[in-house]
Nucleic acid binder design. Sequence first.
DNA 1: ACCACCCGATTGTTCAACAATATTTAGAAA
DNA 2: TTTCTAAATATTGTTGAACAATCGGGTGGT
Lengths: 226, 226
Amino acid sequence: MTLDEILPDLRRQSADVRHAETGLWAASMLRERISAGQLAPGAKLSEEPLCEVLGVSRNTLREAFATLARERVVTRIPNRGVFVTRPTADDIREIYRVRRFLEPAALAWSIEPKTDALHAAIARARVARRAGSVPGMASANQDFHAAIVALTGSERLTQQMTQVLAEMRLVFHSMEDDPLFHAPYIDDNAVILDTFEAGERAAAAALLVDYLHGAEQQLLAAHARA
Amino acid sequence: MTLDEILPDLRRQSADVRHAETGLWAASMLRERISAGQLAPGAKLSEEPLCEVLGVSRNTLREAFATLARERVVTRIPNRGVFVTRPTADDIREIYRVRRFLEPAALAWSIEPKTDALHAAIARARVARRAGSVPGMASANQDFHAAIVALTGSERLTQQMTQVLAEMRLVFHSMEDDPLFHAPYIDDNAVILDTFEAGERAAAAALLVDYLHGAEQQLLAAHARA
DNA sequence: ACCACCCGATTGTTCAACAATATTTAGAAA
DNA sequence: TTTCTAAATATTGTTGAACAATCGGGTGGT
């Protein structure tokens, strides 16, 4: 998917922007498209046409770029331009390194955990599986893992997890989707949640670590193939 | 400490800046001053004088502001300006929430840990204590805890810890320093490191959690007084 | 085929202006 | 005098155009 194809689509939404947040608005606009895969990893984000389409000046667009670069959604190469980040194998390893600390820690040590969001995510994933919706399963699965970290009650940790999951989406986009990738993990999630609610936190954390190791291996293999 | 007093000092360093990274340079310039306490929490960072002094345009300065705002070093109030962040009691709680997950997890679960940096930090802290240097103790103590998270081998987690420690410095600056605050923690650090190297990771993590709870309470009390 | 070099295109940065919003000042009313 | 309202002022938000710096590709020579 190249840039030009989505320009008209973007232009449609550039109507009502308020003062004092144009840069953030532009950033969220681009973030959406990238997250949805309409702007694929590796795609170049040229300033000129994007300004034109978003209806913002180059200066404002660059503020948006700075935001996205800090989120690692976009990679800036000096004097070359900004590109949708194309995750490397090392990125995948690093992502799972982070997840293997954040998620088990949340399961093991969070105070007064509310598991509603976790149950809801699993339910949504099952609906999506029955409907055969790969994006639905992917999204629900991500919600589940975000909810795990949200158990910590920490805004900053949750935010970091959200960011890492956004990077995960880039990983998925940068290789052809195996339609069966997400399906088996749904039941694993359910088992982890059961174990957790049975009060066996350490066991739940250990299960999750295995789970994450498995997923990492699978993704690394797929990445090597691509 | 007001803005004007450090302007001449800042101007001195604004000589050799390269193309394609002026924004980041300006950000690091300000970050330094804030971290050193020369720009105290609550201080207003006006665009006009800062541009003048750093020798950059308002646009570039605003890119720097965006960077610092994302690091929470600086708080942006729309149409009002940017201010050095003044941490609240809730911020303190959140900071320790993050630390109580990140640091114990690193102790408990990191692979092939290299403890050289930890020993070095403790040694530096002891030298500083003998010299009666409060900033020296504070800095060495922060290095110790940064090194704990660095055990994870994760760039992102280490970066988040660095950021949280930068927020800690703001906390210290926003209340009068108790010269004895850091001293007792040095030996606690040593005990934790010994326990860790004895292979008793869970015990070391537990000690650290207690330690962090204690420090949080102490800071919250001091914050309430101020 | 290989290399140095120039040219065009794009990014990096500045400047000056205007729009939008806050703050301050001044004046009117009580 | 005090208080409230409203215009004047200052500061931030955003734009557009200009120029400098850098990169990539093409050109020509060997």
